[in-house]
Nucleic acid binder design. Sequence first.
DNA 1: CAGAGTTTTTGCCTATGAGTCGATAACCCG
DNA 2: CGGGTTATCGACTCATAGGCAAAAACTCTG
Lengths: 231, 231
Amino acid sequence: MPKSTTADPPAHEALAVVLQVRDGVLQVLLWQRARTPFLGAWALPGGRLGPDETLERSLRRHLAAKVDVRELAHLEQLETLSEPGRHPGQRLVATAYLGLVPADVDPKVPADTRWHPVGELPAMAFDHGEIVLAGRERLRAKLSYTNVGFALAPPSFTVSELRELYRAALGHDVSATNLQRVLVRRRLLEPTGETRSPGRAGGRPAAVFRFAAADLAVTDPFAVLRPPDAR
Amino acid sequence: MPKSTTADPPAHEALAVVLQVRDGVLQVLLWQRARTPFLGAWALPGGRLGPDETLERSLRRHLAAKVDVRELAHLEQLETLSEPGRHPGQRLVATAYLGLVPADVDPKVPADTRWHPVGELPAMAFDHGEIVLAGRERLRAKLSYTNVGFALAPPSFTVSELRELYRAALGHDVSATNLQRVLVRRRLLEPTGETRSPGRAGGRPAAVFRFAAADLAVTDPFAVLRPPDAR
DNA sequence: CAGAGTTTTTGCCTATGAGTCGATAACCCG
DNA sequence: CGGGTTATCGACTCATAGGCAAAAACTCTG
């Protein structure tokens, strides 16, 4: 077994905070360590950067062991962590990514892997707990000024369903009236024309919407910096 | 001389996009390479990650050779680049940072180092050209929804002076009227009470302002995600 | 020293997007 | 068909941004 000291050249790993709204709660994909250090604690999926791959490709490769990568509707780089002591016994720099899975899929995961509500994380290995929270913050922020919602939502949905997703991801209630009109006005949401039949309790059938674009777009509401001629 | 192949464990470097508004133009600090590859081309300051330091500390250490690090009013992580071919002959992962220098200082720089307008970059080494543009984009975006302006501006300034800085950083004109009132209303700017005597051409003396906070603060204008009880 | 020229600041109006509330629409079930 | 339920829409208020022009406060010239 090779001796590991901090004098070794720092190795590099890619980690993923994979989030999905499940049962009305924002959850993160974690696997349970079967080895020391942090035996029994929960960790983010990921692994070492190989010699001929980018970080993102490396991450997708490692992630494939835990979840079907094709179900990731969005993947973006979060931050790179380099505290010398973040990994005991060995220097390991980590680049964290944020991945999002739409609510309509239920990926098959191996036995050591499980979804956990980000609000009640179990005992976490290394600094992975903080990374999860950083991912949640990034998601919250981007929900407001981008259309990342498309990566949490099914291909089509009613406003009530979308509202549930936003509520879970943001951690607070949102007005259905406002959500609908704001997103429609921003041209992010468009009606499919279909309606969904009401539940057993009755009620007006809901209109079905979809996100207008399937890739990330930002809506920039800020004025000070807008060029005078823009519009 | 050691042979370098892509089979070597990937090394890690930290790079800095140091920006300052000079002569009314946004400029970036570059140094000219005296060795191959890219002999004569211009590169970002930075260097290898040492065994017992974080990326940020490593960056500050390397940066100290090019500029007085204490004059950096802001430093934040930009992105991590991992294309296997980004550095010829050797695998090198880079984490880029964005650094900002207030307009009132003129740091002493060594002979091989010079400021260049980001709008007209010279022949750049490696992928450093793209990194500079990423840094400019980040600055532009953050000027709109944060108070990063404090890191470009002197401790106190008139609205006209601030307008020049915004114009240079954003690349387009901004209304002085609006800039003043928007920033004051957001509680980012506060008057010092002093005034600055007008130039030789006459004119009303300008009120002197300062940024209310010297650390980064975001103003979140988006409503959909705002909790119903917030205010 | 009055008035023209300059620059800065302020007041007022408009436009846009968000938040609230209540009314209306469209369904279920009895 | 009427009461219960859910969804959507309309109308109003509010907050912030942008534009324009007037007013303020100075310098300079004749």
